[in-house]
Design a protein around this nucleic acid. Structure first.
Length: 507
RNA sequence: GUCCCCAUCGUCCAGAGGCCUAGGACGUGGCCCUUUCAAGGCCAAAACGCGGGUUCGAAUCCCGCUGGGGACGCCA
């Protein structure tokens, strides 16, 4: 099997396109086939190298690698349409010679008027065929006279076109609603319908998985394959991804590009897993009547192993960021800590916590990550969850009316005092030592459960809520001992925090 | 307007004539756990668009309607 993803480099990689790329990749990888990246940049106006680079970066980020492509070489290159112009030219000439194509001199204004007319009178809005009957001589004369014609494909009117879509089954079009498409523009550039056919044929693509918006292009393309003497590939049209209001997913629904989801702090494996679930489900999803085994979350290699086109659904899917977040939480929990620490770095800087950690610094962050990874949806929430490390002020905490109220109680005050005293002579805390200290405070004050731990939380973290103290306390004290060279902002230790809090409380 | 595609809980899916009192997941609500917020565990509410057929029997097949989406570019 040879499959391809063929984006036009005219902007960011949209999640809908990413899903199309993913389905192609999944089928290629799951079948031991070949995955090809081809850049469709025949529209010089809109295409840019920046977009191409961005798309390549995003595909790589998602982990969708290709065997042949503009940067990878391969036996069927080049893989950029702008570098294949000579091929289109030669096939266009062939079509012209065989009378399968003809020159069209119609102007855009003329075409627009005809189209409006057709719609107004209830006829199909397709090319009227004005230049179809022009003789070679007539055409040649007009070209010599300086006119710049486009080239149109002569759609045979005899037969209907039927193709077996791998996800939908037979799709039938009446030939007489298919207008003659432009295959080469007046400026000599090939048009989409022509370039894809030439490329897919020459690159020996066996399966074309693409969006449903291409379904009505398919009959013209099949006719072009036939006129060129090529065998059409198997087509599979995917339904589109919609926004919550069932309109096409767009910026007004929020994030739509892969780059945006990355910068919000989603993990690539989460996006990939979630995207695979829109319009596809693993064979025993839901466990049928047996119920139970939740097997929607799976690593990408398993996705590839289990993917098949006959499990792809027919109806459009709504992009649900809540479910994406759920997948992300899952992958956050099982991801490697050091990797997470590295990935979280940019978010700290955005949050105003400047840091340039060295190896020790990363190791520390990885350790601290344990108190964020299980309680956060996205990486961009990590700094807030870890703010208690870098941002501590007993005075600020005590300015909170609710805290003042809590500290009016004798029990809470006793806990604060006892904690400060216990800590005054204690070494840095790890989990066990913290528990021992907590027990001491409990013994000395008689406070327990919430009445014991909540004041401790206030004192040590400066906050009424946050990660488990078992996790937060060791992280704070480990951070307090970090040398400046670690590149982590200074962290006030538990001992110092308790001292400061007790002092501040006396005021 | 013409052509094409689609139609099960709010959302994503399972369901390929009797296994359906329609199953799972996300989300939502409740309860439990608990050292706070989360997380986690358990429970619950929640759907076959409508109308005709076919059949002993239809979510499943056929037709129509309605609804949604797509295409009709010298964009891809």
């Amino acid at each position: 099997m040879r499959l391809r993803f063929a984006p036009s480099p005219t902007g960011q990689l949209h999640v809908g396109n990413a899903r199309t790329a993913l389905f192609n990749w999944l089928l290629a990888r799951g079948s031991g086939g070949t995955f090809i990246l081809r850049i469709e940049d025949t529209d010089v106006e809109r295409s840019s190298r920046e977009s191409e680079a961005a798309i390549i970066r995003d595909l790589r980020w998602l982990g969708l690698d290709w065997d042949e492509g503009p940067d990878a070489s391969g036996a069927h290159g080049p893989y950029r349409q702008s570098e294949r112009l000579h091929l289109y030219q030669s096939y266009a000439k062939e079509l012209l010679g065989a009378e399968h194509a003809y020159y069209c001199f119609c102007t855009t204004a003329q075409l627009d008027a005809e189209r409006q007319d057709a719609v107004a009178s209830g006829r199909p809005a397709r090319y009227a065929g004005t230049c179809r009957r022009l003789s070679r001589d007539q055409a040649a004369a007009r070209i010599i006279a300086g006119e710049r014609p486009a080239i149109r494909f002569r759609v045979p009117q005899e037969h209907d076109v039927v193709f077996a879509d791998a996800v939908r089954g037979d799709v039938r079009f009446q030939a007489d609603v298919i207008g003659d498409p432009i295959i080469v523009r007046a400026d000599g550039a090939p048009a989409y319908n022509f370039a894809v056919v030439v490329d897919d044929a020459l690159m020996e693509i066996t399966h074309v998985i693409r969006g449903e918006d291409h379904i009505s292009n398919t009959p013209r393309q099949i006719l072009l394959y036939e006129a060129l003497g090529f065998t059409p590939p198997t087509f599979a049209h995917l339904s589109l991804v919609m926004g919550p209001d069932h309109s096409p997913l767009s910026k007004r629904h929020g994030a739509t590009s892969v780059a945006e989801f990355r910068s919000k702090g989603y993990l690539p494996e989460a996006l990939v897993n979630y995207l695979a679930l829109i319009g596809w489900s693993p064979r025993d999803a839901g466990g049928g009547r047996a119920g139970g085994d939740d097997d929607e979350l799976m690593p990408v290699d398993e996705l590839a192993r289990r993917f098949s086109l006959d499990r792809v659904g027919h109806s459009a899917g709504v992009f649900d960021e809540e479910k994406l977040a759920w997948a992300n939480r899952h992958y956050l929990k099982i991801a490697d800590s050091a990797r997470l620490a590295e990935l979280a770095l940019p978010y700290f800087n955005v949050a105003g916590v400047r840091m340039t950690p060295d190896e020790d610094g990363i190791a520390f962050l990885a350790f601290a990550m344990s108190m964020a990874r299980a309680s956060v949806d996205r990486l961009n929430q990590v700094p807030a969850r870890l703010a208690l490390l870098f941002d501590y002020s007993a005075e600020a905490t005590l300015r909170d009316p609710a805290v003042r109220e809590e500290m009016r109680g004798d029990g809470a005050r006793a806990v604060v005092t006892a904690l400060a005293e216990e800590l005054a002579s204690a070494p840095r805390l790890d989990r066990e030592r913290f528990r021992a200290v907590a027990n001491q405070v409990k013994a000395r004050t008689g406070q327990k459960a919430k009445a014991l731990f909540h004041p401790i939380r206030l004192v040590l973290t400066g906050r009424a809520e946050g990660p488990e103290l078992d996790l937060a306390v060791p992280a704070i004290d480990r951070g307090a001992d970090l040398p400046a060279s670690a590149g982590i902002p200074p962290i006030l230790g538990c001992r110092e925090r308790a001292q400061a809090f007790a002092e501040a409380l006396k005021q």
